[in-house]
Design a protein around this nucleic acid. Structure first.
Lengths: 370, 370
DNA sequence: AGGGAATATGTGACCGTTCACAATCCTGGC
DNA sequence: GCCAGGATTGTGAACGGTCACATATTCCCT
C-alpha cells in the first residue's frame, strides 16, 4: 500500500473500463506513466525506466509494468518526453519539389538514415519562391522540429537555406557550393564536375565536333557541371557554345530541344538531367532527327526509367540516396556535437553508356517523321 | 523593479549577449516566455497572449512584448505547447515508396492540404514488408504524431493500415476498397474501374480483337481496374486473357513485355501504370514489334514524363494530388470531430489519347531490330 | 557480523506552455 | 461619488514525462 499517499483529485479518465469490454469507443484522455504505475503498484519513475529499457529494474517488476502498459494501452507522449528531456530527435526536410527524381531520391536517403538513428522526419514543401513565403515555411519547419535539412538544388532552396534561423541545427544538400566551401558550412554535394567532363569527352571521342548543353537552372553562376563541360571542350580546343538554359522537367527539355533541332550543327547534347534529355529526344524525333544516328543525347542522374527509354538513355549515375544519407549524418554529427562540421563531397558519379549516344555520322539516314 | 522578486538561481544562458555582437555562437538553452516577460516587464501569461494573437492585450503592451521577443530571438517551444494544450496538429504519412509517381503525387497533395491547415507532416517509409517491421514503423509514427495517413496502394500499405493502433486518428488512400466500403472506414480512393473499362473499350474500338492486361500488384483479389477491364471485354463478348501480374516499375513491365512479345496474338496491352507501360514498350521494341503499328499500349496514371515518350503514351489521368488532399480533409474532419467518416471516391479519371495506341493492323511492317 | 558496492525503487523539482480563475484598472451611467 | 461590467493583467496548477538525488534492499567479502 505504498502508493496510496496521494489520491488523484480529479480522475479525468475512468481508470478501469475496457480490458475486455469490446471495441470500446475512443479514449480521449491519454493514460500516463502515473496511471500505469498505479496499476502495476510501482512508482512512476520505475515505469519510466521500463519504457526506456534502461537501468536497473528487477525482471519481475518489469513484467508487471509491461503488463500494466499493455492492459492500459499506454503509449508515451512524445511531446512530454521532448519537453522534459530537452532533446529533440526530429528534423524536417525543406524542399521545393518531391516529384523530381533527384529530390525524391535524396529525401529517401535522408529518411532512411534518420529512421536508423531513430529520428522522425517531417517534410515541408516550398511552393512559392517569394521571399516571405520561404521565410514563413522555414519558420514553421523550425519550430515544429529541432533541426532541418534543406535540399538546396535550386534557387528557392538556396533562399530557404539562407533563411534558416541562427542556432538551429541544419545541413544542406547543395548543387554547387560557393567557392571555396568554408569549414563550418554544413554542406554536402555531389561533385559532378568530373562526370560532366568525362561525359563531354565521351561525346567528343565519338567524333562529334562539339557538345551542346541544356542546363538545369543553377544556384550559382558556374555550376560544377557546366564547368566540367566547358573544361572538356576547352581541352579539345573547341569553344563552348552558349548553354541552353532550361527548367527541370521534360517540357523544358522539349522546348530547348525544339530550339536546338533547328540548328543542323548540333549533333551532341548533354542534358542537366534525364527529364530534360527525354524532352530533348522527343523534340528531335518530332523534327525528324533520329537518336542516336543524327543526334546523340546524354542525360544526368540515371533516373530509374532511363534504362527503358527507347533508345535507352546514356546518362550519369548520381548517388542521391547516398547524398541524403550523408546529409543526415552531417546533421546528426552537428547535433551530437561530435564531428566538426566540414563541407564535403559524396559519391563518385559515373557515366553509364547506353544507346542514346553514338558516333558522329555526317549524313545519317533520317528516320521517318513522327 | 516589479519583477525582481525571484531571481533565477541558475541562469543557464547569459541573458544579454548578441543583439549586435557578430555571429554569436550557438545558444543552447532556449529562451522561454518567462524570459520574454521579464524583459518586457509583464507576466508570462501576457506573453502567451501576445504570441497567440488572441485575447485582450493593450496595444502598447503588445508592442513591448513583441520588441522583447525580437530582442531575445524567442521562438515558442512546440513540445511544451503541444503538451500543455493537448492538441496535436501533426500527422505522419506512412508509405512504401516515395519515388513512384502515384505515391509521390499523393504525398504532395497531402502535404499541400496539411500545410494549409497548419499541420506539420512527417513521413515514414515502409522498407520491409515483414509484419513486425511494419508494426514497428507504424508504432513509431503513431507516437511521433497525433495522427496518421496511410498510403495503402499496395500490400505493405494494407498491412500498415491494419496495424494502426485503435483510437489513433487515421485516414487512408486505398487502391480498391473491400466491398462494400462501410461507413466509418476512413478510406478515400480513385474509382478507376470506369476508366479501365473505357480504355479497354477504346482499344477494342480500334479494331483489336482482345486486350491484354499487365497488372500492378493488387491489394485485393479483384481491383476495380481489373474489373473494369474484364467488364469491357465481356461486353464485347471476348473472354479475358489471363492478366499478367507484374510489379510497379519499368523493369517489371519490361519482363512482362518480354513474355507477351512472344505471343503474336497480342496486339493491345493495358498497363497498370505508366512505368509498366514504358517497360512493355521497351520489350516490344527489342522484340522488333513497333508501337503502335504492331502493338498498342495504354498506361495508367499520366505521369509527367509520359507525354514525352516516343511514341507519347496514351494513358489514364489520375488525380493523385486530389486524392491526397481528400485524404487529409477526411483526417481533419475526423480529428475536429466535425463531419462523420464516410468512405468516398475522388476525382474522375480520364483517358488521354496520345500516340501509343493505334488501330489494329494485321500485317504491320516490322521496324528494325533495336 | 559489519561494511561497502551494486542493485532496485521512490521523491521532488522542473521542462515551457496553456488553462481556469482571480485580481486590478477603466469608463460611463446614475 | 459609487458601482456594474468590460478590458487588461496576474497567479497557481496542470500537461506527461525526465533528471538528480535519496532511500531501500541485496549481495559479496573480509
Amino acid at each position: 500500500m505504498s502508493v496510496t499517499g496521494h489520491t488523484s483529485p480529479k480522475p479525468t479518465a475512468p481508470a478501469s473500463a475496457d480490458a475486455a469490454g469490446g471495441p470500446s469507443r475512443q479514449r480521449s484522455r491519454s493514460v500516463s506513466i502515473r496511471d500505469v504505475a498505479k496499476v502495476a503498484g510501482v512508482s512512476y519513475q520505475t515505469v519510466s525506466r521500463v519504457i526506456n529499457g534502461n537501468s536497473y529494474v528487477r525482471d519481475s517488476t518489469r513484467d508487471r509494468v509491461q503488463a500494466a502498459i499493455a492492459e492500459l494501452g499506454f503509449r508515451p507522449n512524445s511531446a512530454a518526453r521532448a519537453l522534459a528531456s530537452g532533446e529533440n530527435k526530429s528534423l524536417t526536410v525543406i524542399t521545393s519539389n518531391t516529384t523530381l527524381y533527384g529530390y525524391a531520391a535524396t529525401l529517401q536517403g535522408i529518411e532512411e538514415a534518420a529512421r536508423a538513428a531513430d529520428f522522425s522526419v517531417g517534410i515541408s514543401v516550398l511552393e512559392s519562391s517569394d521571399e516571405n513565403d520561404v521565410r514563413a515555411a522555414v519558420d514553421r519547419a523550425a519550430d515544429s522540429s529541432g533541426s532541418v535539412i534543406v535540399i538546396a538544388f535550386d534557387h528557392v532552396g538556396t533562399l530557404a537555406l539562407r533563411a534558416v534561423p541562427d542556432g538551429l541545427p541544419v545541413a544542406a544538400a547543395v548543387e554547387t557550393p560557393e567557392t571555396p566551401p568554408v569549414a563550418g558550412q554544413p554542406w554536402v554535394w555531389i561533385d559532378d564536375g568530373e562526370a560532366a567532363r568525362s561525359a563531354t569527352r565521351y561525346l567528343l571521342d565519338l567524333g562529334h565536333s562539339t557538345v551542346h548543353y541544356v542546363a538545369i537552372p543553377s544556384t550559382t553562376h558556374t555550376s560544377r557541371r557546366t564547368a566540367g563541360w566547358q573544361a572538356a571542350l576547352a581541352a579539345a580546343g573547341v569553344t563552348a557554345p552558349e548553354p541552353v538554359g532550361a527548367g527541370w522537367d521534360a517540357l523544358a527539355g522539349y522546348q530547348a530541344g525544339r530550339r536546338l533541332a533547328r540548328d543542323r550543327a548540333v549533333s551532341a547534347i548533354l542534358c542537366g538531367n534525364d527529364d530534360l534529355a527525354l524532352g530533348v529526344i522527343r523534340a528531335m524525333h518530332e523534327a525528324g532527327r533520329s537518336i542516336p544516328e543524327s543526334v546523340s543525347v546524354v542525360g544526368f542522374d540515371n533516373a530509374p526509367q532511363s534504362a527503358f527509354y527507347t533508345p535507352s538513355l546514356t546518362t550519369v549515375r548520381m548517388d542521391f540516396v547516398g547524398l541524403g544519407r550523408a546529409c543526415f549524418s552531417m546533421l546528426h554529427g552537428e547535433i551530437e556535437g561530435t564531428a566538426p562540421i566540414v563541407p564535403h563531397t559524396v559519391g563518385r558519379p559515373e557515366l553509364i553508356v547506353r544507346e542514346s549516344a553514338g558516333s558522329f555520322n555526317p549524313h545519317p539516314t533520317e528516320s521517318r517523321l513522327r
